[in-house]
Amino acid sequence: MLKQAFAIFWKDLASELRTRYAINALLMFVVVTLAVIMFALVGETLSPGALTGMLWVVMFFAAMSGLSRSFVAEEERGTSMTLQLLATPTAIYLGKLLFNLLLVLALNIFIVLLFLLTMDQFTVAQIDLFWFVILLGSIGIASATTIIAAIIAKANTKGTLFPVLSFPVILPLLMAGISATKIAVEEPMWDTVWPDLQLLGSYIVVVITISFLLFEFVWKD
């Protein structure tokens, strides 16, 4: 099953590297969004806490514009039935989850690096905790959006439906992520950040478990 999942993951990666369908547009999206923020904030001094909120807004919208791609592409090209004939739903879900995880990690690392380079006011008090929170947040975003992407791929208005369906589901993750990042940026205290980290961890476990249970219903016509 793991082998199948990795094979599907490699297929998506090879396909993406060949077509550059998502990644080029996504990188440009991030650059444009950051440029808009910087133009809007010319001459303003913002606290690192407020900039943390901005950072998460960019990460959320980047995820919303890119992460539905892997499922929507299968559905639009009509290859989902082909995939269905090749592997079990569990392997397919896992493969797609891995691909989305890689995509969102690459994207978020890019966003954070750009943020650190371009925003002078954005200083991080404890950098290792900060990166750990970004990592957990990325896993959370990937796990929540993968199953939602599978759902909207079967619907008609895919693009607009994705953020509509994702937002209420992902909101607890965003709030815990923002809270934990703020602590890492402003005044790192392990005992204050611990509940947020627990919350992020349990959110990931719950969402992935429930996705495994429900994916087959979504996937099979």
Partner: peptide, 11 residues
């Protein structure tokens, strides 16, 4: 139904 269950698990 699937969305309903996911929402009920995360809310």
């Amino acid at each position: 139904a699937v969305y309903n269950i996911i929402a009920a698990a995360t809310v």
